[in-house]
Design a protein around this nucleic acid. Structure first.
Lengths: 127, 127
DNA sequence: ACATTACATTCCGATATAGGAATATGTCAA
DNA sequence: TTGACATATTCCTATATCGGAATGTAATGT
């Protein structure tokens, strides 16, 4: 089996950086394809293909006006992603607290003198 | 060019549903590989391969204890994802407000009798 | 009708995947 | 040492991608 289709869900669709850029660009207001091409400096067919993927998973909405098609981000479709990531919030806060506590404990134990070459692998110097 | 590597960033890594399951399972506490295999009902090599990807992008941390390796989700690495999705929050709230306003406007105008089959394609009834 | 504009789709090629099977590595135990 | 256990890696194949080039399609202007 290969990797899941980009159109299988929002997670796969936003894995592509350009698609994320497009979503950000189209978040506030609807824009024709040409403006996306100009603004992001991509090839037109490339933009069309990305928009197709985004449309298939419901991340953008399209409206025809004359010969142009106006796209806009359907922000609600990004919510599940936000919520999934949010389920980890309490855990990263936990970790941050641990780092903070460790730093404070070390500070109480007295200052540490500089080593000549700060070694990024040594985490002993935080704070 | 093909699709970006799953190890290129967290967005690509979490595109795979099983990897999301693994991250959720390992969020609270560290677990050996065997438990993940048992809990999620996957093949052991498959789990090892997913863990490799997650480790490469920093989404999990590993610690060796005897002959087993304990993995735990590095929740902080999920934060960028949460924050990116969060930049769209005001937009989906906007959309929700519009829906709400429309509903209230309709309520003020008096109750509408049920149409036999609510057709989602008909947008002609707003206001 | 014809040219032009605005997009979408198709065809191509290189690459990266995920699962399955088999195998390799590393650690503990007798 | 030998063997059992825990995990990782390799090899394989089918598939799906992304970009680029070329082409298709639909609406507008003259």
């Amino acid at each position: 089996m290969a990797r899941a289709s980009t159109t299988s869900d929002a997670f796969n669709a936003v894995a592509e950086p350009r698609r994320r850029e497009i979503l950000s660009y189209l978040a506030g207001s609807e824009r024709p394809v040409g403006e996306i091409v100009a603004a992001l400096g991509l090839e037109q067919p490339s933009v069309s293909k990305h928009l197709r993927v985004l449309r298939d998973v419901g991340l953008v909405r399209m409206r025809c006006v004359g010969r142009q098609k106006l796209y806009q981000t359907n922000a609600a479709a990004i919510r599940p992603l936000h919520e999934w990531a949010g389920t980890f919030e309490r855990y990263w806060q936990h970790q941050l607290n641990r780092v903070k506590e460790r730093a404070e404990a070390m500070a109480r134990q007295g200052p540490v003198f500089n080593s000549p070459e700060p070694n990024p692998n040594l985490k002993s110097k935080e704070k």
